[in-house]
Design a binder for these strands. Structure first.
Lengths: 206, 206
DNA sequence: GTCTATACTCTGATAGAC
DNA sequence: GTCTATCAGAGTATAGAC
């Protein structure tokens, strides 16, 4: 309700970060209801009451994580330049999204778990910011198609396919590695595969 | 430990089914730890002790669900015929997998949640049956590529891409619908989009 | 087979000493 | 700022009446 008091000491800042990192670890593995403050406190190396000194409730910790997340998650799509060369821009987006999945798998799983459970704590953000950005970029894609610079496909489902294919490697990491077996670099292989896939999908035919 | 006593009365059989259906509902929404016996019992229309008369523990209910699941889940891939026409067989697989996601979204989400959490209760099944089937079908795909009947791409990642793209529409249903807005039929649109995608990916170029 | 009652543990959160 | 102690409620599971 009240504006957040920002002046925090170094130790406060540091502890908040430690807690959020621990919470990300635990929430991403067990979901909101499955996660416990005991676990989070243990991973953070703090006592449970001390954790609750920094955040008023379990819900509050979760909310801070989610709030910061969506923005980062949409950055790669935002960076798709309407003035650039279409195929190059789309492949660039795929590459950035895949890198994000590789470098921030816990964030990806936190997000996935939230959506999987019906997005009870993200509904507005999804129906607001997310939808607006997709609608905007879909318009760019349609223009490129109208100009005959890429194949005509459903632009929103094209974006869905990029999300699905990149996040799969973070969210289903266990399955991917179990099936591939040892001696593989899933993300490197995915990068090559996805470049081929989207190039063939979008390059104009003969 | 002991072989399961199979002779069950009609009412027992019926109640087991009611419980498993309720459990699927609740587990798929909240994950194993987030689900409670209270919720499951309520959805099933039974008392909690009565539920525990049919299953010895929460863990046991979850296990029965998962055990039955993987087999059903792999059926569409099993049905891909090595003797058929390659592109037709692959598109048929995509279609069957998408239909499964549309008709059994709860099962899809249960599976997704389990993998997301590191597959603590499915590890062996994934490293065993699942891996074996994928390896087998990958060999079929490679043969088709060797024979010059479809484009050469990484066969295992091709299978991954089918999983990712079809399950996305079940697992992220909330997000898909929020972005598309009203007046859309996500699965129908996905069917057309995916047919285009895999046809363009796999058809031999000029 | 089904219910009420209850044992016992875990979990989120608070009080108050230091 | 951090800790010990503790509470109230929810959670899994069992006992035992009917």
């Amino acid at each position: 309700m009240s504006p957040i008091a920002q002046p925090r000491s170094r130790i406060q800042q540091k502890n908040r970060e430690v807690i959020l990192d621990a919470a990300l670890e635990v929430f991403s593995l067990h979901g909101f209801r499955g996660a416990t403050l005991d676990q989070i406190a243990e991973v953070a190396g703090l006592s449970k009451p001390n954790l609750l000194y920094y955040f008023p409730s379990k819900e509050a910790v979760h909310k801070v994580l989610l709030t910061g997340l969506l923005d980062t998650w949409l950055d790669p799509l935002r960076a798709m330049d309407p003035k650039g060369e279409p195929l190059r821009e789309i492949l660039g987006y795929v590459r950035r999204k895949l890198d994000l999945a590789r470098d921030y798998p816990r964030e990806s799983r936190l997000f996935a778990g939230e959506i999987l459970q019906g997005a009870p704590r993200m509904r507005e953000a999804i129906e607001g910011d997310l939808r607006a950005l997709v609608t905007d970029k879909a318009r760019v894609l349609i223009r490129w198609m109208d100009e005959g610079r890429i194949t005509r496909v459903d632009p929103v489902h094209l974006i869905f396919s990029i999300w699905a294919l990149t996040q799969h490697y973070a969210d289903f990491d266990v399955q991917v590695r179990a099936v591939l077996g040892p001696g593989h670099d899933p993300f490197a292989e995915a990068g090559r595969f996805l470049e081929t896939l989207f190039t063939r999908l979008l390059s104009l035919g003969p």
